[in-house]
Design a protein around this nucleic acid. Structure first.
Lengths: 349, 349
DNA sequence: CGCCAATTTGACAGCGTTGTCATTTTGCTC
DNA sequence: GAGCAAAATGACAACGCTGTCAAATTGGCG
């Protein structure tokens, strides 16, 4: 049967408090004692009971992941990365899909703290970039990590895992320019997403560096969806001076652009180059396969989880938080250009 | 501040035990008393503490979802459906992605019970169709629900939510036949999946009903992946007597078939009809959009969760389990034919 | 060898519930 | 209106752990 702290204590010949000290890595335990306890833990396959810990202690052993993202692959990657980090440290993960439109996150956050006693949260866009959410989390004295597009990290770098959309978009645009493209359409995502601004900036910077003037009519507003990709691409392609390449702010919009091009009997990449962003699985399953920027979501999630977990832990135990915190945790990620089959030389020469 | 059972008891002027009885729907509480307590609960926004409940009680308030499915949309739909049911009844969900290849599920299941004290599990394919897993779950005396393809429900219908792949595949094939197709290729999924057998059966039954002889060379083995869809379709289309339609066992394979057809400059649906299965989001984002069968995963998940939750609950409280159990819970789902743009009349006439 | 401060260890009281069992109250019946 | 079984309620001890604080042990020094 499942063994408890009492069993371990008896076996090691110490009090339960000492066992508690050992498993929590508290100071003031003689090495010899520590070893006795560890051996007993080993032999009995002891695992502290989470419910009891949550009930008794001031700190808790569950964290939550808050998200609202239509891309299931993104969410799954995040979950798996965090789960991995949690498992390694004996934490539990509560997943919490929320609705960014309905504005109930703050209440939900409070409920999470009061009811489930979560110790920390991982915030993903758009929540991670919403001031009221950040304020609430601070007010609740919750440990948190924000996964954000670099632009949104401001003075809070300490609590952020950044994705440098600008740098990645710069690379993508440069790739297009190197293939001779001069008129490059830009399909932007929803205004409310910091990432779309970052991507637009990268696009602009690359143009500027190449000495190409920005043509405002080539930048089309949209909203990160397949349909808006179709619409945006159509608008672009039906204009008098259509672009020779289209930079879609994410893969879904790129797939939409592909769809629109097909409808108009435009050959990809011979007559038009199209790039996406994100490297979602279906970017490999389009025809032709999409050139895109790979975002290492699983890795990002792992780092994010490690960050919150370290925070929660360093509160209780007397560890060098600063030293521990940075160990092996990447805090800025630059999505990497992935050249596949949807881009080629500009037909314009 | 968070209120406890003591606060409620004080406010209602009863003992905490009585409050406990009320919130657990136990008998032997006078209606007047019950009302007093309910009012107090209401006023104080009382919510029982999960950790305490899990620690003190014999039953627990967390269930787990076990899965291993590369389709992120499937997983997310499941999660959301279950989460909804959990929230409604104050349960907590632990997600547990596992690896069906590594054969460690049983150990993980045991750990889930011993360590996290889960009350029940929702099993999805392939775990729901693996005998050793079912045995283990029974051994652990866990409440469970299996989401399975009808073929795998055997004598365990009580614990199953069935998806009738055969009926749906029959409908799909019939749709093709009605469009004049006589040579219909079948791209099958992995042998180990019960669903693929069910789908193949439906295909066969439809052919038979229409008096079409089964051409064995038209049934190609595969494994539910994009690549195997490409390969299978190629094999089919390069043969001497290619089919005029292809029934892919899932959308991913159908996308692969689409890809292969494109490579071979075959027009869809003019020269070839292609159908998928599952209605995954990207089936809407292919060109042309895929005709497929819609599987209401979210709904399926809700019913599955309701089923386990009722079981767990009926153990403790004295409710008419049977009556309660069936209330509003659908146990057999037939995916529905969704005609889009990838199917049309047979070119063969 | 004894004293004292620092270090290590342990006893015990919670944490917010549920389970067990004793006690009180209710509603009959005669 | 007394007597009694049944129904309703409550007191109190768990559950497995952490936090607090007191007790025991250590080791350095005179």
């Amino acid at each position: 049967m499942k063994s408890t702290i009492n069993d371990v204590a008896a076996r090691a010949g110490v009090s339960i408090k000492t066992v508690s000290r050992v498993i929590n890595n508290e100071p003031s335990v003689r090495p010899a004692t520590r070893k006795k306890v560890m051996d007993a833990v080993e032999e009995l396959h002891y695992q502290p009971n989470l419910a009891a810990r949550n009930l008794a202690g001031t700190r808790s052993y569950t964290i939550a992941l808050i998200y609202d993202n239509p891309n299931a692959y993104y969410v799954i990657d995040m979950q798996n990365g965090i789960l991995e980090a949690c498992k390694a440290r004996g934490y539990e993960l509560l997943i919490h899909p929320s609705n960014s439109k309905s504005d109930t996150v703050n209440d939900e956050l409070r409920a999470l703290v009061e009811h489930s006693k979560v110790a920390g949260v991982v915030l993903t866009p758009p929540f991670s970039e919403t001031q009221s959410v950040i304020d609430e989390v601070n007010k609740l004295d919750l440990d948190y990590v924000r996964i954000v597009s670099s632009g949104a990290a401001e003075g809070d770098e300490e609590n952020c895992i950044q994705v440098d959309d600008t740098a990645a978009a710069f690379d993508i645009t440069k790739h297009l320019i190197e293939h001779g493209h001069k008129r490059i359409g830009f399909l932007s995502g929803g205004e409310e997403h910091v990432s779309t601004h970052g991507r637009l900036d990268g696009y602009k910077q690359a143009l500027q560096q190449a000495g190409i003037n920005l043509a405002p009519e080539l930048v089309i507003p949209g909203e990160y969806s397949f349909d808006s990709g179709v619409a945006g691409a159509k608008a672009l392609l039906e204009s008098d001076t259509p672009p020779t390449a289209i930079f879609a702010s994410n893969d879904e919009m790129a797939a939409g652009a592909l769809f629109a091009a097909r409808l108009m009997h435009i050959e990809i990449p011979e007559q038009l180059s199209i790039v996406g962003f994100e490297d979602s699985p279906f970017s490999r399953q389009t025809w032709p396969k999409l050139t895109t920027a790979h975002q290492p979501n699983n890795e990002i999630a792992k780092c994010a989880a490690a960050l919150v977990l370290n925070k929660a832990r360093s509160k209780g135990a007397a560890e060098s938080a600063a030293a521990n915190k940075e160990a092996g945790i990447t805090k800025v990620f630059v999505p990497e250009l992935l050249v596949r089959d949807s881009t080629g030389d500009s037909p314009a020469g």
